[in-house]
């Protein structure tokens, strides 16, 4: 460690490890109500967490939520990119989950065939 820039480089690297404690970035929200869990939400969550780790994605948060009433459509996964609409995907399976991460989270392209709702964010 010889210069201020060395320190700044180290800081950028270490920052990712505690990013979870800052409530920012892209949010992925998984429905973990009884209905969601019964439909396999746990497996979807593990898949998403694996994908994030494999792709070494920074700035992504994974949260869970309870039942929002569309039990028929479980597993539900929502993606919110900062400044964009909240997109709800329905009947998500393992493959869909991987596509959602690769397309929407990474590249910002909505996976249209799985979308069941859009909510305007203000």
């Amino acid at each position: 460690m010889k210069t201020l820039d060395d320190l700044k480089a180290l800081r950028e690297k270490l920052k990712e490890d505690i990013r979870v404690r800052k409530n920012d970035g892209i949010k992925i929200i998984i429905g973990m109500g009884t209905c969601g869990i019964a439909a396999g939400a746990r497996e979807i969550m593990s898949t998403i967490l694996d994908e994030i780790a494999t792709r070494n994605l920074q700035n992504v948060q994974v949260q869970q939520t309870g039942c929002i009433g569309m039990c028929e459509q479980e597993v539900l996964v929502d993606v919110i990119r900062p400044g964009e609409d909240r997109i709800t995907y329905g009947k998500v399976d393992v493959n869909d989950a991987k596509r959602i991460v690769a397309e929407h989270v990474v590249n910002g392209r909505i996976v249209e065939d799985k979308v069941i709702g859009k909510i305007k964010q203000d």
Binding site: T3, L4, L7, K8, L10, R11, L14, I18
Partner: peptide, 26 residues
């Protein structure tokens, strides 16, 4: 209450030792 006090990495991640670096190098 925000960082683990026994992990210097967390202190550095939040900008720690930048003051010392700035003082010494600039």
């Amino acid at each position: 209450g925000v960082i683990n006090p026994e992990a210097i990495e967390e202190y550095v991640a939040l900008g720690g030792y930048e003051g010392l670096a700035k003082a010494l190098t600039e």
